[in-house]
Design a protein around this nucleic acid. Structure first.
Length: 117
DNA sequence: CTAATGACAAACT
DNA sequence: CAGTTTGCCATTA
């Protein structure tokens, strides 16, 4: 249980959730991209950890977050392993062999789309 | 307090 | 070019 969420940790979580929630339908982003947007280029694992915690937060489309290869690395962590792929396909994302096709096409970079004015 | 793990990524061999 | 290893940051044992 994430009960010891200190303000410092929560901040990271909220940033991740904010970005993930802003991902448009039919698009996907990578852990590294989010981490980079948060300033932690090597914090991709923390993003993944945040995703693991996102299960207790509603409105977190974690199925739109995949690894840099477009592979549904976290599908196994969903309620149903196929839930992630199904959700993405429902949004028009083509998935083959648990991997997003044309990932660079649907890739949604927060640092590029949410770039500061 | 030290060691090991992880929904990753980049560097090295 | 492909496979292996290290690094990052935080959590858990």
């Amino acid at each position: 249980m994430i009960e010891n969420l200190n303000a410092k940790n929560k901040d990271f979580f909220e940033h991740v959730f904010q970005v993930v929630k802003l991902i448009p339908s039919g698009r996907a982003t990578s852990y590294g991209a989010i981490a980079n947007y948060l300033g932690s280029s090597r914090g991709a694992r923390m993003v993944g950890w945040a995703m693991n915690a996102s299960h207790q937060f509603p409105g977190i489309p974690a199925h739109r977050v995949v690894n840099r290869n477009g592979l549904l690395s976290g599908k196994m962590h969903f309620p149903s392993p196929d839930s992630m792929q199904t959700a993405l396909e429902a949004e028009g994302v083509i998935i083959l062999n648990d991997q997003i096709q044309d990932f660079e096409k649907i890739f949604w970079d927060p640092s590029q789309e949410l770039k500061l004015p």
